[in-house]
Deep mutational scan, measured.
Amino acid sequence: VPQRAWTVEQLRSEQLPKKDIIKFLQEHGSDSFLAEHKLLGNIKNVAKTANKDHLVTAYNHLFETKRFK
């Protein structure tokens, strides 16, 4: 089981690129989880459509539901 890579403050910070969060989610989330949160596909394309709040919610949801690969 992966550990949380970032704190809530870090997740919301401008310093953390959306692409980093997407990469983490794609590496650790199950396909059904990723599909549900519309996070499947090319990281660049996902970054265009997903806002930061959406990614933070998905990140927290992944750990709450433990839907890891």
Rank of each mutant, 00 (worst) to 15 (best):
V1Y: 13
V1E: 15
P2D: 04
P2H: 05
Q3V: 10
R4Y: 07
R4K: 09
R4Q: 10
A5L: 15
A5E: 15
A5T: 12
W6L: 03
W6H: 05
W6C: 08
W6N: 04
W6Q: 03
T7S: 09
V8E: 15
E9P: 04
E9Y: 03
E9G: 03
E9D: 09
Q10T: 05
Q10P: 02
Q10Y: 05
L11K: 02
R12H: 14
S13F: 03
S13K: 04
S13N: 07
S13V: 02
S13I: 03
S13P: 02
E14K: 13
E14C: 09
Q15F: 11
P17W: 04
K18T: 12
K19I: 14
K19E: 15
D20G: 05
I21W: 01
I21T: 01
I21R: 00
I21Q: 01
I22H: 01
I22R: 00
K23I: 13
F24C: 04
L25C: 01
L25K: 00
Q26G: 02
Q26D: 01
Q26E: 02
Q26W: 09
Q26S: 04
Q26R: 13
Q26H: 08
E27D: 12
E27H: 08
H28A: 10
H28K: 05
H28M: 07
H28Q: 07
G29V: 01
G29A: 15
G29K: 00
D31G: 11
D31W: 15
S32P: 07
F33E: 00
F33Y: 06
A35L: 12
E36R: 06
H37W: 11
K38M: 13
K38W: 09
K38R: 10
K38Y: 10
K38T: 07
K38A: 13
K38F: 11
L39P: 00
L39C: 02
L40M: 12
L40G: 08
G41T: 04
G41R: 06
G41E: 04
G41N: 05
K44P: 10
N45L: 15
N45D: 15
V46T: 06
V46A: 05
A47L: 13
K48Y: 13
K48G: 09
T49K: 11
T49M: 14
T49P: 02
T49F: 14
A50D: 03
N51Y: 08
N51S: 14
K52H: 04
L55T: 03
V56A: 14
V56S: 06
T57E: 14
A58H: 02
A58E: 01
A58R: 01
N60P: 01
N60V: 14
H61E: 15
L62V: 02
L62T: 00
E64Y: 13
E64C: 08
T65E: 11
T65W: 11
K66E: 09
K66H: 10
K66S: 11
K66P: 03
K66N: 10
F68S: 02
K69S: 08
K69Q: 07
K69W: 06
